[in-house]
Computed example of a mutant assay.
Amino acid sequence: MANKMHKSFSFFLMYALVVTLQLIQVQGGYTPCTVILTSCHNENCNQRCMEYRGDARLLRSNCNFHNLCTCEFDRPPVGRSCTAPNGLCSYKCNESCCNAKCKDRYRNTGTGICVVDYNLYFCKCVYQR
Rank of each mutant, 00 (worst) to 15 (best):
N99D: 15
E95M: 00
R60N: 09
R107N: 15
N3K: 14
C102E: 04
L120T: 05
Y15F: 10
M50S: 14
M14Q: 12
K103M: 02
V35T: 14
P85Y: 04
F9Y: 09
R57C: 01
N99E: 09
R105K: 11
I113G: 05
G79S: 11
G87S: 07
N99H: 12
C45I: 08
N119H: 15
Q47C: 01
C45Q: 03
F73L: 04
V26L: 08
C49Y: 01
V35N: 13
C63N: 06
D104V: 00
N67A: 05
V116D: 15
L21I: 12
V78P: 14
Y106S: 03
Y118P: 03
F122N: 01
D104T: 11
V26C: 02
Y127A: 06
T20G: 07
G54Y: 03
L37K: 06
T70K: 10
K7L: 04
Y121V: 07
L59I: 10
P32C: 02
D55C: 00
L88T: 14
D104F: 00
L120C: 02
L88A: 11
M50V: 12
G28P: 06
N67P: 03
S96W: 11
K4W: 10
G112L: 01
F9G: 02
C114W: 01
V78T: 14
P76S: 12
C93Y: 06
Y91G: 13
Y127T: 14
N3P: 07
F12E: 11
T111F: 00
N46R: 07
E51K: 10
T70D: 06
L13C: 13
T111P: 07
L37Q: 03
C89N: 03
P32N: 01
H41C: 05
N42G: 09
C71D: 15
L13M: 11
V115Y: 05
R80A: 04
C98T: 11
Y15D: 05
V26P: 07
N64D: 14
R105G: 04
T34Q: 10
T20Y: 13
V19D: 07
N86R: 13
V35G: 12
D104G: 02
S90V: 04
R129G: 07
R48P: 08
C69V: 12
K4H: 12
G54L: 00
Y121F: 06
E43H: 12
R53W: 05
Y106R: 08
Y30H: 06
D104W: 00
N62D: 15
Y127L: 01
C33D: 10
R80Q: 13
T70V: 08
R60K: 06
Q22A: 06
D55E: 14
C102N: 08
R53T: 09
R57E: 15
Y52D: 13
D117T: 11
V19Q: 07
T20I: 10
N3V: 14
C33R: 14
R129Q: 10
G28C: 03
N119P: 07
Q47H: 15
C40F: 07
C63M: 05
R53Q: 14
N119D: 15
C82Q: 01
C33L: 06
Y15C: 09
A56Y: 03
G28A: 02
D55R: 09
L88V: 13
E43W: 06
C98I: 07
K101L: 06
T31K: 06
Q22Y: 04
M1S: 14
C69Y: 05
R105H: 03
N67S: 10
F73D: 11
N64H: 09
Q128H: 13
